[in-house]
Design a protein around this nucleic acid. Structure first.
Lengths: 353, 353
DNA sequence: TTGCTCCTCACGTCACGTGAGGTGGC
DNA sequence: TTGCTCCTCACGTCACGTGAGGTGGC
């Protein structure tokens, strides 16, 4: 068998001599023999297969530490390792893509010189007719609109209040939408975690809450959303739901296993697939929207959206002359349908001035 | 305006103090003032917007050098820069994904212990009835099946021969499919380039050729393909075209602007969208296939596939008792259709032994 | 006094690329 | 002799993380 010098071997394997010296040192690919006097490295042709696999994995940008373990696996296991590595690469790329899309939306909105707008708003929660307490929360200000629906019990009550309070603190004058996009969810989640640990007593339920909120800067709104509270936009008389419920029944609807009509009366309608739990694992939906004068926005908890059909919600929003009367009308509608759950409602009008 | 210390500012912006000291040094984000005695850095709240943009771009893993230019752009231009950066990120990820898929296919095939197989083959080219010379090439051995169709003229003749010769040299015993996948196309392309520069005389046409080839290792075939030469698989009496033409008419068919029937008689049927040109820019299709005993493979140039309808090709392949008679029958068929172009044909049977 | 923040080196990480300066074989 | 390859340092790249050792203000 004719041995190859490092240069010949490197060319055949698609590596550089420099890289091969590193792999020698790292014990990843040792030369067959090393000349005692000159220090020349010599490789066997049979080592090419391993070298080429390493070169290939490096082209995938797999770290050398990972490659070291992959090359010692069976072909089948190695294939699985490559697949799993690429899965994580693709997941990371998708994450970067989402962040980039948000940034592009934000930057694009920056540039359009809009007429000065402001908002008029009303926020209210209602205990409903059945529940013994109220774990919904609602808040509205010139820069923040938010509703949160804590799970039943004192812990849920504290969680929804804490989430909204955290948002209020990070939406200060001079702060930009970038902050809201980057940190609103995680700081709300931390606040929920803190509200849980400060409870002192166990047995008062789970510290879990949904959160749907708009942070406003000029004519741009950043929407953060997790759980089954909802945001709607009323524009030109059309009602558009702009959030997607993180709930078990919604996932059944998405996969076609359930019709939207069946969903409303499903026995597990309350089951959430995502929520703020204070564990730092919150993956909320985030997006940027541009508003126009004349738009009316509604944020509400499922105490409204589950019991009042959306055509009725639309009619009430269209008919109400101002946010206060809209909120009153919607809560009255929920009571007309029995008000089996707490109700949170925020309505905001976009106006020029 | 209250100034912020580096720690406060870093927390607000989502950066680390360490990173901010680096950005200071790089002139990317300078403190508003630096205390002359202590060296403490102080930042203005108004700098948060820029800091957050930098933090966001770093989350996208944009290099600092690029970020430096992006932050000086208008929001609209910055959005375009982010989009273009992500486009290149996605392209690179897609490339890694293709490489990973190939590697997984290769590794998966390695593991399945197949019965020992070998191949019987025949290769032939024919000048046809019209053309004044033959710039097609065909080759078959135990480990390599290849056809190439050079553009008309002496230079094309040399190009097709050089491409196949280069493949023969890189398919040595002991070499693995990984080599073929990684380097076959580029070495064939280099050979085409060399054949052009060694011509000595200009005016003998372009050094351009198609190439369709199988490199075999055990029961695995690596397919490399560029241009409008084709590979077919005959399995269980079904004829399957396993290459996709890199031609202008095929792109029209793909986009639905042309039916497959119209394509055959299209006046620009010869126009290639990809070929080996010796310029190092060859982007061939590469894939890995597992063969079974009983399979029959056909590689051919458009001198066959353009003039003989594929049902007739199928019938001839089904009827022929061995590769030699299949090749003879196919070339006879091309002649029966006028043989307006050179014809290259390789047929190989997979057999157990 | 303790604990917190800030500072400036300076080394470690990752996987090499790129000389610098010198040797060995045709 | 020239040109080629090989060798071993050693520094540069990239964007920080992580101490080390010391200061300043409540």
């Amino acid at each position: 068998v004719k041995l190859l010098t490092i240069g010949e071997f490197a060319r055949a394997a698609g590596l550089t001599p420099k890289a091969m010296r590193l792999y020698d040192e790292l014990d990843l690919l040792r030369p067959a023999t090393v000349d005692g006097e000159s220090g020349y490295r010599y490789y066997q042709p049979a080592q090419l297969e391993r070298a080429r696999l390493i070169a290939w994995l490096r082209q995938l940008r797999m770290p050398l530490a990972t490659i070291r373990s992959v090359v010692s696996l069976s072909p089948e296991q190695a294939a699985a390792a490559v697949r799993s590595f690429m899965t994580s690469v693709l997941a990371e790329t998708a994450h970067r893509q989402r962040l980039a899309d948000l940034l592009v939306d934000y930057l694009s909105g920056r540039d359009t010189a809009m007429p000065e707008i402001s908002i008029r708003y009303a926020a209210r929660t209602d205990q409903g007719a059945i529940r013994p307490n109220n774990s919904d929360a609602a808040y509205a200000s010139d820069t923040l609109l938010a509703v949160a629906d804590g799970v039943a019990g004192p812990a849920g009550e504290r969680a929804s209040a804490a989430a909204i309070s955290a948002l209020r603190d990070c939406v200060l004058p001079g702060e930009s939408l970038l902050t809201a996009l980057a940190s609103a969810v995680s700081s709300a989640d931390r606040a929920v975690g803190a509200s849980a640990s400060s409870s002192g007593q166990s047995g008062d339920g789970e510290s879990v809450t949904t959160l749907t909120a708009f942070v406003r800067s000029g004519s741009q709104l950043a929407l953060v959303h997790i759980g089954d509270t909802r945001a709607y936009q009323l524009r030109d008389g059309e009602l558009l739901q702009i959030t997607h419920d993180h709930s078990y029944v919604q996932s059944l609807v998405d996969s076609g296993e359930l019709s939207p009509e069946e969903a409303a009366s499903h026995p597990q309608a309350m089951l959430l697939t995502k929520a703020l739990t204070g564990t730092g694992s919150a993956a909320a939906d985030v997006s940027v929207h541009s508003v126009s004068a004349g738009d009316r926005y509604l944020l509400c908890s499922d105490g409204l959206s589950r019991v009042v059909p959306s055509p009725d919600i639309r009619s009430a929003l269209v008919a109400a002359p101002d946010p206060e009367s809209a909120v009153d009308a919607l809560i009255a509608l929920a009571h007309a349908h029995g008000a089996p759950d707490n109700i949170a409602c925020v309505v905001a009008d976009v106006v020029t001035r």
